[in-house]
Design a protein around this nucleic acid. Structure first.
Lengths: 152, 152
DNA sequence: GTTGAAACAGGTTCCCC
DNA sequence: GGGGAACCTGTTTCAAC
């Protein structure tokens, strides 16, 4: 299949604002509305576009506290790993969880109301998961950049 | 202003899939289409919803390599900090940049094609920014969870 | 890939309760 | 504040080039 520079531009536009009309996009891309429509459908069908979502203001809904948690497991048997990953994925406070290289096994991005809520989360939810060896948390002092737009 | 449980549910639905019709949402929320429409407009106007975007498959566009970089600055004068943050924010490979507590000053989420591209990025772009003292990179081995949905 | 037009669906407005 | 119907804008399909 063909995936050209116009598709790349189109994806960039849609990653920035998915509520633009096909007419607006057709102007920016110097294409007809029909061509834009067909390209978008192709990008959706071929799995380039996963989904369309609303991004909300975390401060506005009282989730201003962001922290990153390093986690080390006690053991790394298949059983332990699978169970840990499953339980972590089910925690709504955990937006992201990665298995990473380095001293620790996992890196988690956690979002809660405030420091107190974070303490709650850490004690009641996170460390109550079995198999966790040690954790190390970093608090976000300031968000310098945060985008969902992947550039080309 | 009022921000009730229905609004919370609505935000959760929109964070998951913003292409749902108001009719579908009205069914899920047991409201009329008009009520859904007005609530969404209110949430947009009041800044709860920042924007609507398309989320794309990073592997599909050859950006499969994700790394987190810890960065320590040489100095922390206002000048240095402002300049560093500005330059980092301009790098398209950097999706997220946080000023964090702990041993290092910043934590960056970087996305590129592969390990070689990451090396390029590190040597040519990141460390060519002045004022950087030291860096420490963690590579993502596996993405266990990655969502943009902030829960209530 | 383009244009134009027709058909349709959904968003938007208004008036009612 | 919510519901129903009319209106209007954008999407979708299709034809012909």
């Amino acid at each position: 299949m063909i995936f050209d520079d116009i598709d790349k531009k189109l994806l960039t536009f849609l990653q920035t604002d998915s509520k633009q009309t096909n007419k607006e996009l057709s102007n920016k891309l110097n294409l007809s509305v029909t061509a834009v429509y067909e390209r978008i459908k192709k990008l959706e069908k071929d799995g380039f576009i996963n989904k369309y979502v609303a991004l909300i203001d975390k401060d506005r809904i009282d989730k201003s506290f962001v922290a990153f948690c390093h986690i080390k497991l006690i053991q790394h048997t298949q059983d332990y790993v699978v169970k840990f990953e499953k339980e972590v994925a089910n925690l709504p406070e955990v937006l992201e969880c990665y298995h990473v290289s380095g001293e620790y096994d996992y890196l988690l991005k956690v979002i809660v109301k405030d420091m107190m809520a974070f303490r709650e989360f850490l004690v009641k939810k996170l460390t109550s998961i079995n198999h966790i060896g040690s954790t190390h948390s970093m608090f976000v002092i300031n968000e310098v950049k945060h985008t969902t737009v992947i550039g080309f």
